[in-house]
Amino acid sequence: MEKTDVEILFEQIDNITETVQQYSNETYLDSLAVTLEVIFYQHPPEGMDEKLQEQLQNFIPQLDVSKYKTTEIRKALQLAMLKGMKGATQQQHLMTPETVALFVGYLAGKVTAGKKNLRMFDPASGTGNLVMAVLDQLETAGSVFASEVDPTLINLAVLNANLQKKEIEYFHQDSLRPFLLDPVDLVISDLPVGYYPDDIRANDFELKADEGHSYSHHLFIEQSMKYTTPGGYLIFVIPEFLFDSDQSDKLHAYLQENAHIVGVLQLPETAFKSEKNRKSILILQKKGPNTTAFNQPLLVQVPSFKETKAMDDILAQMNAWFAENMNS
């Protein structure tokens, strides 16, 4: 069977990364960052092992990313990053599945339809796969911002954006600290799940825990609301248990006061490695002077992405819901 362009490009990136890894004794993800620099600048970084430099010089003429489509580059890089994350134990080193990222992009297009010069922000961008998948589907994005605290992931995200010729302004910081950022029209995020270790910083949030560590996924929702314009939208990939946890009463009250729930989509179990990793998508609108609650929020049980007929039916129902409820 003939290889696709995505497979060909992935294999080339993978070969170079493994070569870098042999010489540098770094992780696959850190070696991948070196590879992407070499591809982008078309020469090896200065100060590296001479033998490795020679090897990389041999790879460079064979690798011309300009002949690939942006989506092919994104998917090939995604495969390389997934390979690097296979051995990673940290939760934040898990990537948003492609099908889920595409779904978020579809929803982003629906809630921002007709909006010119859209300002978008992902406060937990990881390697940037979600924000770039959404950008591929949004025609009206003006300014795009993203934040990530992990140095390896943000390095990969910036190189990823450069190779795809996407203009994204990155913040390298703890995303629960203040940003030098004007409010945006749309926030998208695959929420980091777990406890936030900085209790002093958490004290500034309404959604802080009454005792012990606060949930970072709750604080991320509040932080995102802070940087959204009144009437703006937020699309979160959330853990299935978000509204059933021990601190969920506080979250319910906070959302009731500050947001309208646009919809909740339960994603198919098949999109995730296991039942405990299962996620949903939560769509919110920040309350503003001209906003009103939705009569009937969009509640959807998404079928397996492989079930084409069921998927078409669900999309038709969702399109009808958006046509009826988002005409304001």
Rank of each mutant, 00 (worst) to 15 (best):
H172I: 11
L180S: 12
E148Q: 07
I154F: 00
S143F: 01
H217Y: 07
A202W: 02
G142E: 04
L186C: 11
P178S: 13
D198R: 02
P197A: 07
R177E: 11
V184C: 09
V134R: 06
D136S: 11
Q173V: 13
S143N: 10
L153E: 03
L159E: 10
A133L: 05
L159D: 03
A209K: 03
H213T: 09
L130C: 01
R119E: 11
N160L: 04
I221P: 00
I188E: 13
L186Y: 06
V134Y: 04
D150H: 12
V187R: 05
V131G: 03
H172K: 14
G212K: 10
K166P: 04
I200H: 09
F220R: 00
E148R: 07
F121S: 06
K115M: 15
L130R: 02
L191R: 10
N129M: 02
F205L: 03
L219A: 07
D210K: 13
F145G: 00
V158D: 03
T127A: 04
T140G: 05
T127H: 02
R177I: 08
N155V: 02
A124P: 04
L156W: 09
E211M: 08
H218I: 00
A133V: 04
Y170M: 06
Q137R: 13
D204K: 15
F205A: 05
Q137A: 09
S147A: 15
